[in-house]
Design a protein around this nucleic acid. Structure first.
Lengths: 218, 218
DNA sequence: TTATACCACGAACGCTTGTTCTGTGTCAAG
DNA sequence: CTTGACACAGAACAAGCGTTCGTGGTATAA
């Protein structure tokens, strides 16, 4: 990568500014930080970063920069995020809350996650785990599970199923066998559970699990 | 909350726009979307949202909006994010890679996470888990662990320790007892491991665990 | 010595974007 | 009927911001 030191500093400033301020910097803000007094020089260097595939620009739009850095974990662009409603809790003894149509961000808590973690898609919602019943899914009390609303599952999907007879929610990988359903714990040292298909109600598919071990400021 | 329908639509548009474009909308972009032809009316409604504590504004700054919505999981503001270097892998048979001073985002892969998940702080880095050896920490092969670089631990901290005699990395809660160290698995059904303090090298503290069950676009 | 590429810079301009001013309409309360 | 609050609207202006132009310096290769 043939970047000058100045270009590297510009790139680092952009990503840091974005993270702190929630908006991209202007050409003049970049210049002020890296000691370039001419907007033309900043413009020239930004065009180099575009050529190198590190940023994108939109013409004649204020703050029309966007980081797409080749070293980002994905190419989706870390500055974007999705908002996922946090609907409540998931616990063994209850069916999970599933979202109604057309939830707006004002109707309750929302979790913002970068698109590095999860792309935007329909039907996402989040639940907080209550109790130790998901341990066999390697999921702990207090973890957050992000799910996609769907009532069918492909073999191998990690799903939340409601077992009607047992009156219990469980998170396991689901496989259809000849006349029964195998619910396979994520923990490879544990044995599967077999259920009659009529007893199994798929409520959503798990797409992301998050465990925070640090208390956030209230 | 006394918002009109129009104000709610403005607020939803701002958060959605931010998530998609990676920058806040302008007053004219908001007006175009919610059908307000006058910048003065958009301005008036934005001031209501400020009064209600849903957004912040900076004067005479382009795109100087910021969502701080009372329904966000935290008040930090979901539009901001931190960038954490993804240094490599963590596996049982090797000490973990720890960051050198002053890593720049250009020097390798970076994970962007919203500050809803983790506040910005010094010494953060991420590792990808290799193998099933962290199962007792309820951590699976392929999970991402975000750690904070520190060589000391308080009782109860979830830490990565290198056991010198065993030549093994493990993730457990650490407690100092009279003459030994107790390493307690996160899985409450498992027994602790006791170690001589001289055998234990704390390499970092786990602050966040992420499990992606969905493949991201390459 | 000349040509080319890269890097740098100030200035000016055009457009984008936010703020302010003046005016109008509706509704509820007194 | 009057007053005040709220919501709306167009226009103008001020400030912010990106683009372009003309110019200059350095290094390298021919």
């Amino acid at each position: 990568m043939g970047l000058s030191e100045r270009q590297q500093r510009i790139y680092e400033f952009i990503t840091k500014f974005m993270g702190e301020k929630g908006r991209p910097p202007t050409i003049r803000e970049i210049g002020a930080k890296v000691g370039i007094t001419s907007t033309s020089v900043v413009n020239y260097n930004l065009n180099i970063l575009v050529r190198e595939g590190l940023i994108q620009r939109e013409k004649e739009v204020s703050r029309g920069l966007r980081v797409i850095g080749a070293n980002a974990k994905s190419m989706v662009g870390g500055a974007s995020f999705v908002q996922i409603p946090l609907l409540g809790k998931i616990a063994a003894g209850h069916p999970i809350p599933v979202p109604d149509a057309g939830l707006a961000p004002l109707d309750g808590e929302v979790l913002s996650l970068t698109r590095d973690l999860i792309p935007d898609q329909e039907g996402l919602f989040a639940l907080e785990v209550k109790g130790n019943s998901m341990i066999d899914a390697l999921i702990n009390d207090g973890d957050i599970v992000v799910m996609k609303k769907q009532e069918t599952a492909q073999n191998g999907d990690m799903v939340a199923v409601w077992l009607k007879d047992e009156k219990e929610t469980t998170l396991k990988r689901l496989y259809r066998e000849r006349s029964r359903i195998r619910l396979q714990p994520m923990n490879p040292t544990m044995k599967p559970f077999y259920a009659d298909p009529r007893n199994v109600e798929v409520q959503g598919k798990v797409v992301l699990v998050i465990r925070q071990l640090q208390k956030l400021p209230a």
